[in-house]
Nucleic acid binder design. Sequence first.
DNA 1: CAATGTCGAGGAAACGTTTACCGGATTCTA
DNA 2: TAGAATCCGGTAAACGTTTCCTCGACATTG
Lengths: 338, 338
Amino acid sequence: MDIREIAKRAKVSTATVSRTINRVPTVDRQLAKRVWKVVEELGYYPNTQARALVSGKTRIFGLIVSEIINPFFPEIVQSFEDIAVQNNYEILLTSTVHDPKRMEISVRRMLERRVEGVAILTFGMEEALLEGLRFRKVPLVFVDVGPPVPHISNIKINYASGIREAVQHLAALRHERIAFITGPLKLKSAKARKDAFEESLREIGIDPDPALIIEGDHTMEGGIRALGQLVRRKGDPTAIMCSNDLTAIGVIREAYEYGIPVPRELSVIGFDDVRLAQFITPPLTTVRMSQTELARLAFKALLTDVERETPTEHGSEYVLDTDLVLRKSTALARASNQ
Amino acid sequence: MDIREIAKRAKVSTATVSRTINRVPTVDRQLAKRVWKVVEELGYYPNTQARALVSGKTRIFGLIVSEIINPFFPEIVQSFEDIAVQNNYEILLTSTVHDPKRMEISVRRMLERRVEGVAILTFGMEEALLEGLRFRKVPLVFVDVGPPVPHISNIKINYASGIREAVQHLAALRHERIAFITGPLKLKSAKARKDAFEESLREIGIDPDPALIIEGDHTMEGGIRALGQLVRRKGDPTAIMCSNDLTAIGVIREAYEYGIPVPRELSVIGFDDVRLAQFITPPLTTVRMSQTELARLAFKALLTDVERETPTEHGSEYVLDTDLVLRKSTALARASNQ
DNA sequence: CAATGTCGAGGAAACGTTTACCGGATTCTA
DNA sequence: TAGAATCCGGTAAACGTTTCCTCGACATTG
């Protein structure tokens, strides 16, 4: 059943049917009513392929993530979908699973399906692979790492705000030896978190102790390993901040193995506030980087770019703040026992 | 850049270009080589909308889930995508967030984008809402609840196998008072799990004690509440099985609050084996219902149906077994202290 | 050697929309 | 009241493919 069928039954032209369905205001109310009636009766719905073919608008946004099973992403995907539904967009979800080949395939898929824009929410994938998209002037939005050129927007994360809050929270609980487990330092975002931590420490008159900065890898196993290293030192820290929640979960898990009660003997703070931070025992105090908000900003960036008629010089920039959310994994420092 | 451009440059007809790209074997090797050369040079890739419009094949499968942030789903989505990529399919991911209206929208989206098949992996959504899909003879695949009609496949979960294993495991650890926290019993799958539990108990000569069967709701909070009820009884259980992992996590969490050490004083077993079962402390012993395998089966069901030329009488049926995976949340029953 | 069959490439129709353009009717203006 | 302007619906071209059909070239057969 197609638009012609509707046209015939409503005794109008296909043009009028099309205009009615697309709510072009100039069509006569009587005609429109007739058309809608037939549409309802037959349960007609337009063919998106045909639509897209002629109009050039697919109403699809691409969303590239690292991997869906990483707890960081489901909430983003969910929020992105919610907004897409509200705006009558479809979403083409693609994951790179940390494989450049898969990234290439992702780009290809986006191109073939003619998405109108792509949000790249991966952790550090080589940008070169996106050349195909950039070349075709598809609007893109990045987190932190987008170059300042037309059609490319950026969401800047304000790591410092939340991390400072966290450090000050620990200081208020009389912690003085605070360790930090970083992410993979080749990741810009991981580096930024570490820098923010050190800066926050200095701000309250504590000099960062290199022995208390351990390089992790943003996995639970990394957290486990890092705690192992930390425990072996004398004068070990009374609090540990982690570059992401998974690391913090690893730390808590390993602390349990060592018989170190969290938070009584050791305070732990994560970063990201993934949903599962609420599920573990004790519920994790962490720095929230709202995934919902991130998705919202990404979508908005894309939509704005698509709807803009004249391209801007530089692509827009958005800022996402972070803040501390208190749960149960931090407490007063134990009396110093060195 | 379109197929005509390629045709012109390769000095063949568009028909030949199309045939070449689609690897129709009758095209002359020389011509094919010419065509491919031009394709590579120009970086041409076909327009999927145009393709779909004329061929009627969109190469899209729909995937309807309850909500992406439910830990049960990310792995399914990931696996589904992996297989889709291998088969050159795209996936239209949609979530109902437990809202019939959203389900309706989902169906509509599937219809508009002309998906070739839909996997419905939600927990108990009214089937009536899928009428639109069924009516248009879109191949569907359900878990457990699909009616036996053409174009509708079913994946039957063998709940009994894993649950029996779990019960026998507990029995071997000398547990005699084993509680069960169910899911919402209006859900067929929850009911089936409970029944399997009771049956397994009888099998080893234990009569299910109704006082030890608590209705939960498949959430962490439900698990917390249920443990509260259980603890208040005298002669409380030494082991608890849960209808899903989230419930088990709630139980463990609340046990911690009560100061009941898991597994020393209380053994806990979950169901599903979501990824996060490995992240909690202690790592959760649980009955695995492989999400990867589930996704694989669902995709296969759809693909088989699409590729079949003559529709079968009944739609096919697949079976997914469950089995126990041992981690750290179970131990020998404590000496009876009643 | 003529007739028939086989093979593969090209021409052109078709898929279901949107939209530029046209033209008739109506309203407005002088 | 005639001409201009405005409005709005219809006609048909276009979007980029796939695929049916035709047709020429060549091989095979009697």
